[in-house]
Design a binder for these strands. Sequence first.
RNA 1: GGAUGGGUGGCCGAGCGGUUUAAGGCAGCGGUCUUGAAAACCGCCGUACGUGAAAGCGUACCGUGAGUUCGAAUCUCACCCCAUCCGCCA
Length: 416
Amino acid sequence: MHDLNEVLRQGHKFDEELARRHHAGLPSTFLSRTGERKAALAQLQAHQAERNQLAAAIGTAKRQGIDTATFEAQGIALRQTVDQLTERVGAIDAELHEILASLPNSLDHEVPPGLNEASNVEKSHSGQIKNFAFPPREHFELGEALGLMDFTTAGKIAGARFTVLRGDLARLERALGQFMIDLHTSKHGYTEIAPPLLVNDATLFGTAQLPKFAEDLFKTTDGRWLIPTAEVPLTNLVSGEIIDVAKLPLRFTALTPSFRSEAGSAGRDTRGMLRQHQFWKVELVSITTPDASADEHERMTICAETVLKELDLPYRRMLLCAGDTGFAAAKTYDLEVWLPGQGTYREISSCSNCHAFQARRMNARYRPAQTGAKPEKPAFVHTLNGSGVAVGRALIAVLENYQNQDSVGFRNQSGH
RNA sequence: GGAUGGGUGGCCGAGCGGUUUAAGGCAGCGGUCUUGAAAACCGCCGUACGUGAAAGCGUACCGUGAGUUCGAAUCUCACCCCAUCCGCCA
């Protein structure tokens, strides 16, 4: 969410910013409506001041036993005016808030132009792509051949886009998740969190899944929502807070399931467990000051990359272009892992710096270090999130990259 | 799900229709005193918006939202959350 005063201050520059995202820009009435609001608010406050004075005068008069009937008649008239103005200001506020809440974040100046993923820029790559002496198979072929990955039974008990894993494959998925979260807590300084997997409207508004992306989510019968990523509860841990600057950065991680309706992706990746309604993911979230967030973004991406390096999986780091960068993000790196079965790179992690965009929606602030006589004003934190990494996709990558002619052989330090 | 009691500034806590501009305390900041510190004393000490060069002035906010009233932290209703007990439950 953008700050109204900042939007007004930037004027045309703000529309140019939105244009980088191929967004139409602010509605033509926006400026005039803010003007109306300002005028109505000034009037409202003047009348409220009058009302407060009148009420105080009536109180004094009553104590002195003076008749207050004419004062009270004035008060009734005043109340009608105040009510009308309150309604008018409230209506304009709601309108402006709705517009502001629907605008995507401004992009970092480093984000390259482009409409879609074709314009993303490779920043680095790592690991050796194996030459197989046989045509490498896709993960679902391997999994089904092993008898440990079962889409038929999953379809029977849940439907499409679910998987039943059995035996060693169920265990391997669990081991991968545990390995990742242990790495981030013991080596990378993240605090493990076990968050709620169901959250309320305000929480999803805070990280900007609501109001625009409700169709991507599952809603419960009591009005809550299943989290589409642990980014949602982890980032909202600091919603409404004013954090002492000495406590920053805060680094949180969690191993949780993620639930996505995949409403817009009918027909895409329908085979296998690449795109599921439910998948495990290790999430990384950092809360920092504005001056530290760019470095934190690099650090976080390296933390995610370390997972792939430890698993010895080939991957590349992509800087997303303007058209591919998500609604809340100012700048995003995707990590794409090599899948020999598909013969292509696929996203396995996405690390974003959201600047103050989510912080403003959540009202999450920090108190800067005091320099003068008075305490500094609270300022919005910067929030960052990244997958470290998607466990289901890591399982796929391990299967495909470690396959042999007639089996799968994989072993890492954790002994699996 | 039922019953009862609660939600007030960074924290504790008073206030239950009009001198509340939210008492008092703790913590924090500035100062006096001191070689320095502590103690004591004095002052400052929430957030947002509007206005102003600034000091300041104004408005809103006492869990959230509606309502009653000339006037609401205070009264009414609904909801949310917390505590305790009962019921149910992994």
